[in-house]
């Protein structure tokens, strides 16, 4: 019999990871690091789903995690392609320097 982790702890850990990722998105200026922080946020939600699924002894949480994983991969594929285009056009990866539109 495995010792079970209480759901609250799992959700709390996921919440902390999510907050860390969010801070990263807000504070970091390099676009590659922003994308990495986004990954942390998405993985935190995955952890929350797995924890929630464990509470109800359902596979749904893990199924959702697989969907999140594949979606994050698709997102990063497009994201990195855009980063390449950005680097070529603006000669920088700084998010603020690449922001020209205002109003």
């Amino acid at each position: 019999m495995m010792a079970t982790v209480p759901t609250e702890y799992g959700l709390l850990l996921a919440g902390m990871l999510f907050a860390l990722g969010l801070i990263g998105v807000l504070v970091r200026r390099n676009i590659v690091f922003i994308l990495m922080s986004l990954e942390i946020m998405l993985n935190a939600t995955g952890l929350a789903f797995v924890t929630a699924g464990a509470r109800w002894a359902q596979a749904d949480g893990q199924v959702m995690y697989l969907f999140i994983l594949s979606m994050a991969a698709a997102e990063v594929a497009v994201g990195l392609a855009l980063v390449l285009k950005l680097k070529r056009q603006f000669k920088t990866l700084d998010a603020d320097a690449a922001s020209r539109m205002h109003g």
Partner: peptide, 14 residues
């Protein structure tokens, strides 16, 4: 914002 939404879904599911 998708991450926010997913986390909300996870909480409701939990």
């Amino acid at each position: 914002s998708a991450a926010f939404m997913l986390f909300g879904m996870a909480l409701i599911y939990a």
